[in-house]
Amino acid sequence: MTEPLLFFIASIVAIVAAALVIIQRHPVYSALYLVVTFCALALLYVLLAAPFIAMVQIIVYAGAIMVLFLFIIFLLNLDRPLETQNKLKHQWLVATALTAVLALEGAHLLARGLPTTSLSEARELTGDFGTIQQIGRALFDQPLVFAFEATSLILLAAMLGVVVLAKRRVD
């Protein structure tokens, strides 16, 4: 069975790379490990019968968004780790406590949901679930086509906002 093997490899790679994003002191290394996480997630999307989402994940996240991150890191010339002195001394304590609450909550929900719900098994797929044709039909059907048009407005607003924010003032 290759599917459980692929799942465990991809999930371990995703978790380790996500932890390294936090641990690395240099933003460039964080960005590169984030690319590894995104690629592992794309593999998981393929396992979940979502090839279109996997391709968009690679193109948009690992491609466009991470290039944007790296470009900003280069533009700001953050060539050395800046976090030297620890100004907020109790930040670690508060962060650990808050995260422990969140993790316990999630673990409690998962542990309680496992035996009772039907989440343990999904049916085997038949037919063409998740193909690009199916996604396109769902996306351009009557109720969602307006949402699709609204995303173009969001992108236009983001583009205008970026130009206004990043414009260097002449005076």
Partner: peptide, 25 residues
């Protein structure tokens, strides 16, 4: 077939790691 709960647990772990990063870095 991987049980769906495994994927949800992985999503929870990744989300928690993101929260840790936002709080710590």
């Amino acid at each position: 077939m991987i049980p769906t709960i495994y994927y949800l647990a992985l999503a929870g772990i990744l989300f928690t790691l993101g929260v840790i990063g936002v709080l710590v870095r």
